[in-house]
């Protein structure tokens, strides 16, 4: 049995090693590599509580190992072990010490809890309104007059105050690298603030089971320099308060016509269109098609051919477009740029 015990330990250590080798996940996605103050505070709490708990675990394991080796029944052992009722001293020790450890944890729990629970007004933080939909994200900047989807654009080093709700079922808004999640409840509003300490792209996820394509309800966060962000917002505002611009090529013009006929009911471009689907004003700037596929002609065409195949149960129907129509639409949509975003 001893050799068994050893081999499982080896296996276990091997697993542990493999995991550590794979690192702490991707910098863009992992809660273990915080990229902003909220995630950093949360990471500190994780480290504190984990170290206390690992300490307790080590004590338990030491006693267990000792007991199992020292007090295993030996062949030929006679007599009956002493029947001990208990020990008040010991019992007090293992009641009081855990209690003290808990207090060590409780203090930063309370302070961080209230720090994260603060709400900032529009003079202190950028205001963003998040509306979750099956299975995509809508982002509005009420004070900037800008509205977008799927790619959340944020300025670096600035607090962002989110107000979150949902248009259908409950979802949860989670950007692990920037901070923990909060639910989006239909009919109710939740508040949360975050901040990014560096520019770049971060990955966001929906964390509450919300239907067939819950797993594919990804979004991206583009964090820009503050002046870049201001320029972006300015431009978006300009475009979104005007009629859609006419593209240059004939094929794209054709695409625009198809778009106005079949798509505008659900999708907005510039100042025009419906809100049942994501706003596509800056679609060509996006990282991904529908949050999951690389944003290039091939994948966009794939999406248009059959959205239900790529994202089961989503609210964009298969429109049975011909390959010609798809081709024109793809060309048209590649013109929907507001600003080249560095990535």
């Amino acid at each position: 049995m001893k050799s068994w015990q050893q081999s499982w330990r080896q296996l276990f250590l091997f697993g542990l090693l493999a995991l550590t080798l794979s690192g702490c996940g991707m910098r863009e996605l992992s809660a273990l590599q915080p990229q902003g103050p909220v995630a950093a505070m949360q990471f500190d709490l994780m480290k504190l509580s984990a170290s206390i708990m690992i300490g307790v675990f080590i004590v338990v394991m030491l006693i267990l190992t000792y007991v199992l080796i020292r007090y295993r029944k030996r062949p030929g052992q006679e007599g009956i072990p002493k029947q001990v009722e208990g020990s008040h001293t010991l019992e007090i020790i293992w009641t009081v010490i855990p209690f003290l450890l808990l207090i060590v944890m409780a203090v930063p729990t309370v302070t961080t809890g209230f720090t994260l629970g603060k709400e900032y007004n529009k003079d202190e933080a950028l205001q963003v309104r998040v509306t979750a939909h099956q299975f995509w994200w809508e982002f509005e900047y009420p004070d900037l007059g800008v509205s977008t989807a799927q790619d959340l654009v944020l300025p670096v080093n600035q607090k962002v105050q989110f107000t979150l709700t949902s248009a259908d079922v409950m979802h949860a808004f989670w950007i692990p690298a920037l901070g923990g999640k909060i639910d989006t409840n239909p009919g109710l509003e939740n508040k949360m603030w975050l901040q990014a300490d560096r520019t770049g792209v971060f990955y966001g996820k929906c964390a509450e089971l919300c239907g067939a394509s819950h797993a594919l309800m990804d979004f991206k966060v583009d964090v820009l320099e503050q002046d870049e962000f201001a320029a972006w917002a300015e431009k978006m505002k300009g475009v979104q308060s005007a009629e859609p611009a006419a593209p240059a090529s004939a094929n794209a013009v054709q695409g625009q016509q198809i778009f106005e006929k079949s798509c505008l009911g659900c999708h907005a471009v510039a100042g025009k269109g419906g809100k049942l689907g994501p706003n596509l004003t800056n679609f060509a700037d996006r990282q991904r098609v529908a949050g999951i596929m690389p944003n290039d002609a091939e994948h966009l065409a794939k999406w248009l051919r059959d959205p239900q195949k790529e994202k089961p149960g989503n609210n964009m129907p298969n429109l049975n477009l011909s390959e010609d129509q798809i081709n024109s639409l793809v060309e048209y949509m590649s013109t929907l740029k507001v600003q080249e975003i560095k990535r």
Partner: peptide, 13 residues
């Protein structure tokens, strides 16, 4: 660890 609400914002779900 899960009982620490601010950290639970990361763990939850």
């Amino acid at each position: 660890m899960l009982a620490v609400p601010p950290a639970d914002y990361q763990y939850h779900d």
